[in-house]
Nucleic acid binder design. Structure first.
Lengths: 166, 166
DNA sequence: GTGAAGTTTCAAAAAGTACTGAACCAACAA
DNA sequence: TTGTTGGTTCAGTACTTTTTGAAACTTCAC
């Protein structure tokens, strides 16, 4: 395999992985490209490498910045913006967890709360509310677990965790 | 809120959550419906409640069974098949992790392996291979962490984990 | 001011994904 | 054997998401 083939393969695979992670294909490909790029790239570089339109590049770069997966880098004397990827994988995963927790878990907790306030009487209602309460309990625990996970640092993850749970 | 409104809301929200979890909307809705249903339901019950076609119901029930989120239940004397949901949330999450690990993480590890075997010489190649190796290291660790997590049991999760990592 | 270089926005088109419905298959009862 | 009930499959359609490309905007130099 040549260097170019390897790079392409990585970008393709990372793109595929991303799409099952709430990150769309192009967003993940841009991230992959920046990950393996030693220097910062401009929007134009990215458009060329991935053969995507200006609008597409712009929107996805912006989204990546929002997610904390990519940083803007301004070069002295250059008006153009350059971009670099967050290269610490633990940071990447952590940021994804933060975003998805906010977008998915938290709204679900809210809904479960609302639902458990059913005022209708009767055994059917009680049974239902009971099931919902169990789900809520589990979700709240997942929520705090993720909070702790987010606070923990990279070293802790790569080092201690595995041994701890063995 | 009435019981029916509560049920509908839960089914809708669970459906929305599912679609960001590699489980499509209908699949998640069927799962939600079965979760809050005290008795097993037939394909026909499901079709009616969710207003979906026979084909759709069949395909998604099948997928849920594949994922280990729903079980078939045969009633004596009935030719019809009935279905019940896995109600232990930890089992649900665990099964989703197992499926996604298999479908996403493992192929990525394989690709990273292939890529690190680039035979081209030169500093650019070495630099690239180095980055790929780091990603691979992280991914392997994630992989074993998930393996341990899968082996752990529900009690461990809801009880010990939170305290441990505090 | 004007124009050049760059960025942002968004309506329309394309691509991707899920759903329907009808045809088909299987098991059983009459 | 035929009719009935239920399960499965899949081509075509409907729906959703992503991408394009062009116009609008911003910033700065002259």
């Amino acid at each position: 395999m040549t260097l170019q083939e390897g790079k392409d393969k990585f970008i393709q695979s990372w793109g595929a992985l991303g799409s099952s992670w709430g990150i769309n294909r192009t967003m993940a490909q841009i991230h992959a490209l920046l990950l393996i790029s030693p220097q910062a790239l401009s929007a134009e570089d990215i458009m060329e490498e991935l053969k995507i339109s200006r609008g597409n590049a712009n929107m996805n770069i912006r989204a990546l910045i929002d997610w904390g997966l990519v940083y803007k880098e301004l070069k002295a004397g250059e008006r153009k913006e350059f971009f670099v990827a967050e290269k610490d994988m633990w940071e990447v995963v952590k940021n994804i967890i933060i975003q998805r927790k906010k977008k998915e878990l938290e709204p679900m907790l809210k809904v479960l709360d609302e639902i458990s306030s059913i005022d209708e009487a009767g055994p059917k209602s009680e049974e239902f509310v009971q099931i919902i309460r169990e789900i809520k309990l589990f979700s709240s625990k997942a929520d705090s677990t993720l909070d702790s996970l987010i606070k923990a640092d990279s070293n802790w993850f790569v080092g201690t965790f595995m041994k701890m749970i063995k």
